[in-house]
Amino acid sequence: MVAVFDKPWEEVLKRLKEEFEYTDEKRYEGDEGNKEWFKFYDTRGFRLVEVGDIDYGMKTTREWGGRLIALASVEMYSRGSITLIQIEVWTSGFDFVQSSELMKFLKKLARTGAVLICGYVYGHEKLRDVFGDYNQFLLYERLAEIVRRKRLEVLPSDLTVIREDILGLEDGLYELVGEPGLYVFVRDLGVEGYKVLLTVGEGLLDDDLYREVLEYGDWFSSKITSLVFKPIGRKVENEPLLKRAEEFFQAQVGEYGR
């Protein structure tokens, strides 16, 4: 998971410690961090300034034993006026984390002042497909540009959190350009000034498929790490799908969807 801020890294670190139980592991001066971690990488101007851990429990689904994933590692990067943090959950990533638990985490992260929150899988072929290379710093660069320009025109991942002024779209359904039958569902996150974007398909209108979908409470854990980077198109009027999308969202996150 990646969160992008339009604040200096020192301020972001302070806010992170206020919202989470955060432990510093190592602070880097100058390009020490890049030399230690990314000697053979083109970091696109990003400088590693801090690594640490967040101690925050998230429950998994029954299929994964209902266990608690408690620790996540944090890498903090700085480039100009942009700060970016990468959060990697230990053991299995975000796999099988309950959608309601993930939503609580995203809300807390939004309260730290993140402008944009999305995700990806390290080394996944989708990085290469979108950016022509497996280098995750190409993704970071694109996300930083979105925040710098204060305009979101593409959907970064299947589940994305964005500050409302960057999005500039009202709630509803929008075309996902180049993906027939898929749409972007936009609604309030439940944190003032923030929206959540979620890909939904026309398959939700199939009652049998919809009932099958509702049997699983961890859909969002896979959507947050699924890169998309397709343009968001025009708003569409499809009341049955819009209603079903809202029902699906609420079924996944429960009280944390308000």
Score class of each variant (00 low, 15 high):
residue 32 E to D: 10
residue 138 L to V: 00
residue 83 T to H: 07
residue 58 M to F: 11
residue 69 I to H: 04
residue 58 M to R: 13
residue 142 R to V: 08
residue 148 R to L: 07
residue 97 V to P: 02
residue 35 K to M: 11
residue 68 L to W: 14
residue 66 G to K: 09
residue 94 F to P: 04
residue 63 E to C: 12
residue 158 D to M: 09
residue 81 S to F: 06
residue 107 K to F: 10
residue 52 G to H: 05
residue 32 E to P: 07
residue 32 E to H: 11
residue 78 S to P: 01
residue 98 Q to F: 07
residue 117 I to S: 12
residue 84 L to A: 01
residue 111 R to V: 11
residue 110 A to M: 04
residue 125 E to T: 12
residue 70 A to Y: 06
residue 102 L to V: 13
residue 131 F to E: 09
residue 53 D to E: 14
residue 117 I to W: 02
residue 115 V to E: 14
residue 87 I to L: 07
residue 40 F to V: 15
residue 74 V to R: 06
residue 99 S to M: 00
residue 82 I to W: 01
residue 86 Q to R: 07
residue 108 K to S: 00
residue 81 S to C: 09
residue 85 I to N: 10
residue 44 R to Q: 11
residue 133 D to G: 11
residue 107 K to M: 03
residue 136 Q to Y: 01
residue 49 V to C: 08
residue 154 V to Y: 12
residue 36 E to A: 13
residue 57 G to W: 07
residue 128 R to T: 06
residue 159 L to Q: 06
residue 112 T to H: 11
residue 95 D to K: 09
residue 140 Y to Q: 02
residue 98 Q to N: 07
residue 87 I to S: 02
residue 56 Y to W: 10
residue 81 S to K: 15
residue 65 G to Y: 15
residue 133 D to E: 12
residue 54 I to G: 08
residue 40 F to R: 10
residue 59 K to E: 08
residue 118 C to R: 08
residue 102 L to H: 01
residue 51 V to Y: 00
residue 46 F to V: 03
residue 50 E to N: 15
residue 55 D to S: 07
residue 153 E to Q: 12
residue 123 G to E: 10
residue 105 F to T: 03
residue 42 D to F: 14
residue 124 H to V: 01
residue 44 R to E: 08
residue 100 S to P: 05
residue 79 R to K: 15
residue 43 T to Y: 10
residue 106 L to N: 06
residue 126 K to Y: 04
residue 84 L to Q: 03
residue 152 L to E: 04
residue 134 Y to W: 14
residue 138 L to Q: 05
residue 35 K to D: 12
residue 65 G to K: 15
residue 81 S to R: 13
residue 82 I to H: 04
residue 86 Q to D: 08
residue 136 Q to R: 10
residue 47 R to D: 15
residue 36 E to Q: 03
residue 34 N to V: 02
residue 94 F to W: 05
residue 152 L to M: 15
residue 58 M to C: 10
residue 84 L to T: 04
residue 80 G to Y: 11
residue 60 T to A: 12
residue 106 L to E: 10
residue 48 L to W: 05
residue 63 E to G: 08
residue 81 S to L: 13
residue 54 I to K: 13
residue 94 F to A: 06
residue 149 R to M: 00
residue 76 M to L: 12
residue 82 I to Q: 08
residue 151 R to Q: 02
residue 32 E to R: 09
residue 144 A to L: 07
residue 52 G to I: 14
residue 133 D to N: 14
residue 101 E to W: 07
residue 155 L to W: 09
residue 29 E to H: 06
residue 29 E to A: 09
